[in-house]
């Protein structure tokens, strides 16, 4: 069992942070890599990119949004409880390079994945502007950490309750107009990554995105996570999870993410109903 040593609720309880004992993974993991977690015997294997690792303490941190039964099960785990299985580190690590001026764009829980990459880009000497967004102020996560990890943090909310009123792409346009951006890293909901990539392509700015498709094994064995990149089929688990944002077929990815949408909804509703009864 992989024990939870710290648990926080964020964004009004819709986003959960778990710091988990996994010393071997913590020792090996690099920014951008992911783990697969399974709560219990009957649980589903859920891939999540690590938000933090602490090799000295032997822990990894995941931050996830509660979207279905599996993440609801995760949410139910308290400090001292644990995950039955955690597999990792999986996927390729982020390619980190000093290129000059970099813009990092994060939306929703993508900010959690963006954080270690942003910090690493800053540490190796890049000048890092960061744009993070959420639907409203309450749902914004990791503001303080992102401030520390970048030179310039800009915030957007869809409803204008905090920072710029509008989408991250509005602010991104300003940053791109300022010029000289060498690299964009965008991690968040698929539509956000799609529109960020569309914009940076116009400015000819190299863009890296991190994808989180449906997966089973995470080792290249099943091909469930296949994505079209530059017209070629890639497996996100071993060829990614990071890809050239200008080449990803986001529309296909969006559709593929809906493969089990009805099953997932029914399973979640049944679980919440059962949970309601037992309370």
């Amino acid at each position: 069992m992989f024990k939870i040593v710290k648990r926080e609720e964020m964004a009004e309880g819709t986003v959960i942070l778990n710091e988990i004992e996994a010393p071997l993974i913590a020792k090996k993991a690099l920014p951008g890599q992911f783990v697969i977690l399974k709560a219990n015997e009957t649980g589903e294997r859920i891939p999540l990119t690590m938000a933090e690792t602490n090799p000295e303490k032997g822990t990894i941190t995941i931050i996830y949004m509660v979207v279905g039964k599996s993440t609801a099960l995760f949410k139910g785990l308290k400090v001292g409880d644990g995950f039955q299985d955690i597999i990792g580190p999986l996927g390729k690590a982020t390619h980190l390079e000093k290129v000059g001026k970099v813009v990092c764009v994060g939306g929703g829980t993508g900010v959690a994945v963006l954080h270690p990459i942003t910090r690493a880009l800053k540490e190796i000497g890049n000048s890092v502007t960061c744009i993070i967004g959420a639907r409203n102020k309450a749902l914004l996560i990791l503001e303080d950490k992102m401030k520390m990890a970048s030179h310039d943090l800009r915030i957007c909310t869809d409803d204008g309750s905090y920072g710029h009123h509008g989408f991250v792409t509005d602010v991104l346009k300003e940053v791109l107009e300022e010029g000289d951006i060498q690299l964009c890293v965008a991690i968040g909901p698929v539509p956000m990554m799609k529109f960020v990539s569309k914009m940076t392509k116009e400015y000819n700015v190299k863009t890296m995105v991190s994808l989180n498709p449906i997966m089973v094994d995470g080792t290249g064995m099943c091909g469930g996570c296949r994505v079209s990149v530059g017209g070629k089929t890639k497996f996100a688990c071993v060829d990614g999870p990071e890809f050239d944002g200008h080449k990803v077929d986001y529309d296909e990815l969006l559709l593929r993410l809906q493969a089990y949408v009805e099953d997932e909804k029914n399973s979640y509703d049944a679980y919440m109903k059962e949970k309601g009864h037992s309370c």
């Binding site: 009957t42 649980g43 589903e44 294997r45 039964k69 599996s70 099960l73 089973v216 094994d217 064995m221 099943c222 091909g223 469930g224 089990y260 099953d263 997932e264 029914n266 399973s267 049944a270």
Partner: peptide, 22 residues
């Protein structure tokens, strides 16, 4: 076939929704 069979055999998806893998 790897994915289809892994879902059904290893993850026991044929028992969904008793198990969580669809």
């Amino acid at each position: 076939a790897n994915e289809y069979l892994t879902r059904s055999n290893l993850m026991k998806a044929y028992l969904f929704p008793e198990v969580d893998t669809p």
